[in-house]
Computed example of a mutant assay.
Amino acid sequence: MSRYAEEYTLTELMAATMAREFRNQETAFVGIGPPLIAAMLANLTHAPDMTIAVEGGAVGSAPRRLLTCIADSTIDERAYSCIPMWRLFGDQQRGFYDVGLIGAAQIDKYGNLNTTGIGGYPRSKVRVAGSGGGNDIGSSAGRLLVMMRQEKRRFIDRVDYLTTPGFLDGGDSRLKAGLRGDGPSGVITDMGVFRFAPDSKEMYLEKCHPGVRPEQVQASVSWDLKIAPQPAATEPPTTEQVEIMRTLDPFGLYLGNGRAAMADPEKGFAFYMRVLEESYPAMEKLLRSKGGQ
């Protein structure tokens, strides 16, 4: 029997693909949502000695309930350390984190990210999440991973606003700017996997997800995208990966449509309490099966 799952969602494929980017014994700075699911998945499979830190100040936490935001007290559960945000970011800026994982509203050919405003700033047509820790992570982490939806309006020739530096103008421009981190190493979307050329630092398509053709990816990018000579197919998630993801996020809060249920003005709080109460036993069982306490 194949070790690959027969059924999985596109979001689960993205998270499993991103999980494979993490390495054992790394220190990883990740955000809440699909990035955290991907990091926890790696931690529960091939990277058991990886340390995960989140913006709220928890380092090495092992929560038994699904996290809903960076300030969720659940995130401090069984953590190695709970420190002020300034200390966490100070350590990150000093180069103590091997890898950072964030999302973005826009990305350009050199991996620069915009999470501030569409149409420029301050007179943005649409204001988005803001920098948060994005600039710090992109500037200082050993390498940067990006996870986002693939759309032509998001993959543009030049970001409307530079929130998080990638390779700036390409070539050695990042090095000349004196940024500590090595810059983006991979971009995972719902269509494929992107890397960056060693010399030009321009993004290129390395892999396509199953059923996706390179020309479809090109149509979802606003510049003349470089494509590997023979793009490989992305490895599907394994049965174990899918089972773990669905245990970590049983209500589809991040990997499904659960956010809409939580936003319901009448039923949202009841749904939130159900998430907390019912996710605990399954996550407790999962973490104990993986050697957790």
Rank of each mutant, 00 (worst) to 15 (best):
I70K: 11
I70F: 13
D199F: 01
G171L: 04
A42Q: 10
M262F: 14
A16W: 14
E206I: 01
A232Y: 02
L41Q: 05
A260T: 09
E12H: 11
I107G: 01
E151S: 12
L286Y: 01
Y4V: 06
E206P: 04
P231I: 03
I37E: 12
G103E: 02
V221F: 12
I37M: 15
E21H: 08
S200A: 10
V193S: 00
L205F: 05
L67P: 01
L67V: 05
R65E: 13
G133C: 08
D76P: 02
V54K: 01
L13W: 13
S185C: 11
F167W: 04
R3V: 12
N24A: 05
R154T: 02
I75T: 14
L44C: 11
A71Q: 06
D72C: 14
C69W: 15
I107M: 00
G192L: 05
T51F: 03
L144S: 09
V126M: 13
P165Y: 02
I137V: 15
E284V: 04
P231V: 02
S185T: 14
D108Q: 00
G111D: 00
A282K: 10
G132W: 07
T247E: 04
D157L: 09
W86I: 12
I137N: 08
N257R: 13
A28P: 00
A105N: 06
Y254L: 10
N135G: 10
R78E: 13
F29D: 00
S222G: 12
L66F: 00
Y4H: 11
Q216E: 15
E215G: 09
A105G: 10
G133W: 14
G111T: 00
F155I: 03
Q25W: 08
M18E: 14
G186R: 01
V187C: 00
Q25T: 09
L276T: 00
F167D: 01
T234A: 07
M273Y: 06
A232F: 01
S289C: 04
F96Q: 08
L168G: 02
